[in-house]
Design a binder for these strands. Structure first.
Lengths: 193, 193
DNA sequence: CATAAATGCCACAGCAATGTGACAGAATAG
DNA sequence: CTATTCTGTCACATTGCTGTGGCATTTATG
């Protein structure tokens, strides 16, 4: 209880290198877990250039580390949606901007959120994002960009897959160029002429 | 060495129920490993309605079981390619037939062959299939079905993803109907009019 | 029915990964 | 420089899965 009497100067600050290590563990973990969902904490720590014990000092359990990684992704997705202004911007503009943003997110946080249905908070935030995009795709159909009469949920399922595919299949493209490919493929397909 | 003297009638035949159990383990294993690549043999056995020990009687190790499952998939893919006559048939016909066949394969053997690069034999057979499809897509471009000038490998990567997506996203569609969706999306995209 | 094949169940050893404790040493902030 | 924070390392208990042996029981087949 003596800690409460300590001033802010006495209480130690968070060290900068600790923050760097934390970020390294999170991004490296995201990359490795995307490649192999069963990756061990030891392998992630080694790849991030950190001891296994250091990871356990920041995260009480494997679940907590995973939660932190998936939360990083969902937070980035929320920002991507906000920035694209899916509700207000012209559909063609919003679509391209959204795709470009998500491609950047996919490259930093390539993990699949479908593997994190256990944590309620994250699942809810993810569901909200999905709903947001579904609404946008409905608007895109209403305003004549997308064809009506497609199988239920087809566009909603196709778009994330295209973004995921281009993110790892065409890594040399910039997010903007990659978005060009995704939007062009989504709208026009690959037919000649 | 007395076994060599035994006649075929003395040597026991393979029992029919054993074959059924084997197939159940393989298909159930494929389904569960697709959902979770770290699924334990115990869980697969339970789901298939057999004892864990029964699995170990047929497969010396986990690796062997996985190899058998992935081999089932690659064999089915080879048959699908042959049946589609990718080299000879008109490109539009061959494409639809190939897609329809692979969708059926995906529903029985949904595992991802990219997770089986360890076994040389399977990897080689997989590579041969990939090459076969790549050649076909080149022919489709040469004959004016697909647009030239796309990013390298884009069509090759997109097609399997579309088939994979429709296989699990639209399970109520027949393989033929699902193939309609894939081919239409691939060639025309989702743009209105 | 009688034989051979196949399965289910119990038990056990080995291994890899998780999670925790303690302590000495390195790095940083004031 | 000094106090504090952070890290690396050795050690240890625990858990879940793999892989194996033995034996009684069930089931298919001729």
């Amino acid at each position: 209880m003596s800690q409460a009497a300590h001033s802010a100067t006495t209480l130690g600050a968070v060290r900068a290198d600790a923050v760097r290590n934390l970020e390294a563990v999170l991004t490296t973990g995201a990359r490795m877990l995307a490649a192999d969902p069963g990756a061990s904490i030891a392998s992630i720590a080694t790849e991030a250039g950190v001891d296994r014990r250091t990871v356990y000092r920041r995260f009480a359990s494997r679940e907590e580390l995973l939660t932190a990684i998936y939360e990083s992704r969902v937070t980035a997705i929320e920002r991507a949606i906000e920035d694209a202004r899916l509700r207000e911007a012209p559909v063609a503009v919003a679509l391209h901007r959204y795709v470009e943003n998500i491609i950047a997110v996919n490259r930093t946080w390539p993990v699949d959120l479908a593997r994190m249905l256990s944590d309620d908070a994250i699942r809810r935030r993810r569901d909200a994002c999905v709903t947001e995009v579904d609404d946008f795709l409905r608007r895109a159909t209403d305003e004549g960009l997308l064809r009506p009469g497609l199988p239920a949920g087809w566009a909603s399922a196709l778009l994330p897959q295209l973004m995921h595919l281009v993110s790892r299949q065409l890594p040399e493209l910039s997010p903007a160029q990659a978005a060009d490919v995704v939007v062009d493929t989504l709208l026009n397909g690959l037919r000649a002429s």
